[in-house]
Design a protein around this nucleic acid. Structure first.
Lengths: 203, 203
DNA sequence: ATAATTTTGTACGATACCGTATAATATAAG
DNA sequence: CTTATATTATACGGTATCGTACAAAATTAT
């Protein structure tokens, strides 16, 4: 027997970066919606052709699912960061909502909102895999938040006279509500103002 | 000059009811989304043919807009009803959220959620008319809520130490967050439980 | 250098859906 | 009874998009 063939890096090299494609796909899906985005739209946005996308990511649904997964991972990190650094619960919620506002709206442009709430959510009614992905994300987000709140912000929980579970449900809900508002095209300034006003409930 | 022609009721009579078409269209749009719903789907759901829909409602976008308008009107009424009858603010919010939960999820079926949040929202990024309709609805909902809260629940506002504006923003946000959760297919029972837990923040 | 392998872009077939033209049907008016 | 009017259903043309087949291009291994 000869040596195993180690593929190494044969053939013509790729002209694009997978992570970059996912970022652009997220942007296009966010702006146009899943159904209204043609596969060619994304290829054009990347300056490459459809077959390249097919070979790498599979069909449109598969590319969308990878985009969502990637987005969810980043979102979870960002959310958790606020709750591990802020000094108190109200400040943590405020920081999280302000960070979200900056993701949902670029400066001086109408906001486009959240890829999950604005684009993935509608598909849940028909696509079971998507439904499970989103409900799983929400459930684990609530669970992580509850745990973190109970561990780090016990004093705030007692002062507010609510349970950690109620507060985690509320806080994730504040985020969803901001995402809904963000989809209606408000300015970043207004969105940040709403974020601050929403966080007031925790003071 | 002869008499003016009073059209009366000439020609073949309609075989359907406009309000009924709107109700069914809302259901189909909610379950499938705007893009994924073909005009024929709605015609079939009504047991009639496409040209009948075109003659009465115009194209798919026009039918969708009428569906949304109709839905918004009913939603506003239902929401306001809770805030004009309940004895205190927490109870009003709870009643509103429970009523919403019952709209978002039929008994013993996975919830399909809210037509605005679940179906219309994604279209906002591309369709300015839709964006204006939704942002207008939210703005007027917030304004109406703020007014009603200031008028009827002044004692609760003072006890909570927040402004009527902050509370109205919060309460509409609780509704949006419930609508997001509802789209992930939870049972009515779970959705009602979440509604009750969310309303706790106002006690 | 030659062969093998992988990616790339153009071009294509298949399918689905939109919106409408056309003719038949059902009612009111003369 | 005949005419005018409005709605209905079938059928069709046009368009867009999906996913792929094919050959050219770019790289590694022998």
């Amino acid at each position: 027997m000869t040596n195993k063939i180690v593929p190494g890096q044969r053939g013509r090299p790729r002209s694009f970066d997978e992570a970059e494609v996912l970022r652009r796909a997220q942007k296009v899906f966010l702006e146009q919606g899943f159904e209204a985005t043609s596969y060619e739209d994304i290829a054009l946005a990347m300056g490459l052709s459809k077959p390249s996308l097919y070979n790498t990511f599979g069909d449109k649904t598969a590319l969308f699912e990878r985009s969502i997964t990637n987005y969810v991972d980043h979102a979870r990190e960002q959310i958790m960061a606020s709750f591990t650094t802020a000094p108190d619960l109200a400040e943590a919620a405020k920081q999280m909502l302000l960070a979200a506002a900056d993701v949902y709206a670029e400066p001086d442009k109408p906001s486009t909102g959240c890829l999950l709430v604005g684009t993935a959510l509608p598909g849940c009614a028909q696509n079971e895999q998507l439904r499970n992905a989103l409900s799983g994300f929400i459930a684990s987000l609530d669970a992580d938040l509850e745990k973190l709140i109970a561990e780090r912000f016990g004093a705030d929980v007692r002062a507010l006279g609510k349970t950690a579970r109620e507060l985690s449900l509320l806080i994730s809900g504040l985020l969803f509500s901001l995402a809904v508002r963000a989809r209606t095209g408000v300015t970043r300034r207004k969105l940040r103002k709403a974020a601050i006003e929403l966080a007031v409930i925790l003071t």
